[in-house]
């Protein structure tokens, strides 16, 4: 039977753990709010950018001539950008992304196609390395607060791989933020830029004298990389918000379990204490009886 001292020690230990998980829960909640605000802040920029591209595409003639819009057939090499967090203790957040990444890799391999893996986040890099996956490029230290410049660099690299013909498609796998409790795994193609995202066949050229400096086709071509940058930045922000949400939920569960455990332990402690007191009284009474 556990002694009083053992139980007290366990209570102290569980209590400390609970304090930590509570603190982590609160930190995650604060970071989550910030991450959500940043997703909101990106929206007008993304909307204006895409609106402008659709507009320009209408004026730019045959859009299939742009390198970033060209679909390749067959797609023999596919690059997969895997987005995880830099830290764990976030429930199934990192594991979900990685499981999907391995699935994708297997499916492509069975199909006779090659996969190139690029990874964001320490956790993903660690697991992929452990599984002896060759990582083409990796970035870490940005899952907490991704900057647009980070997205730009990643997008630059992805575009480079595509334009040099090293890969025929780029996909990104990340957690999309639905609510603090829920994330959906997203696996979306970003290069070549999906045509339907930046063009609108129902739209006719706007009447009226619009000036373009330089010509619409040049502007369109220069804006196309921005689509990839925005897609990467949005994925980074979504992933960052999801990570905080997942961590918050995981830590709340941990705090709740700790609380439950504390209840059980306190009960056990009181029982043991009473049993000890009863025992003592019995001994005193027995002792008195023996003397009398």
């Amino acid at each position: 039977m556990a002694t009083l001292r053992d139980i007290r020690r366990r209570i102290a230990s569980v209590n400390n753990t609970r304090k930590i998980t509570k603190a982590m829960e609160m930190v995650a909640a604060a970071k989550l709010r910030r991450a959500q605000n940043r997703i909101e802040a990106l929206r007008p920029y993304a909307a204006d950018m895409i609106e402008m591209m659709v507009d320009l595409a209408t004026y730019s003639g045959e859009t299939s001539e742009y390198a970033l819009l060209q679909e390749r057939d067959p797609e023999s090499v596919v690059a997969v950008l895997v987005m995880t967090g830099d830290r764990g203790l976030a429930g199934a957040f990192n594991a979900n992304v990685l499981r999907r990444a391995f699935e994708v890799e297997r499916t492509l391999r069975e199909d006779g196609r090659e996969t190139r893996v690029l990874a964001v986040g320490k956790k993903g890099i660690g697991t992929l390395r452990f599984r002896r996956c060759t990582i083409e490029r990796s970035w870490q230290g940005l899952s907490d607060r991704p900057e647009y410049n980070d997205a730009k660099q990643i997008a630059d690299d992805l575009i480079g791989l595509y334009l040099r013909g090293e890969v025929d498609r780029v996909r990104v796998i990340y957690n999309h933020f639905d609510s603090p409790m829920e994330q959906t795994l997203v696996d979306e193609p970003i290069i070549p830029v999906p045509r339907e995202q930046v063009t609108d066949d129902t739209r006719t050229a706007r009447p009226g004298a619009y000036l373009y400096e330089p010509d619409p086709a040049t502007i369109f071509e220069r804006l196309l990389p921005a689509y990839v940058e925005i897609a990467v930045f949005r994925a980074l922000l979504e992933s960052s918000a999801s990570e905080q949400g997942a961590r918050m939920t995981a830590m709340r569960n941990a705090s709740d379990s700790a609380e439950e455990m504390l209840g059980g332990l306190t009960l056990a402690l009181n029982r043991a204490r009473q049993a000890a007191i009863t025992q003592e009284i019995l001994e005193v009474v027995a002792g008195a009886d023996a003397l009398g």
Binding site: D55, G208, Y210, L211, E213, P216, I219
Partner: peptide, 19 residues
């Protein structure tokens, strides 16, 4: 700061898109 030089814009300017 347009790519082809600075552009001064006032109200009622002709509609324009520039890099």
């Amino acid at each position: 700061p347009g790519v082809e030089g600075e552009l001064g814009i006032m109200a009622r300017h002709q509609p324009l898109v520039t890099l």
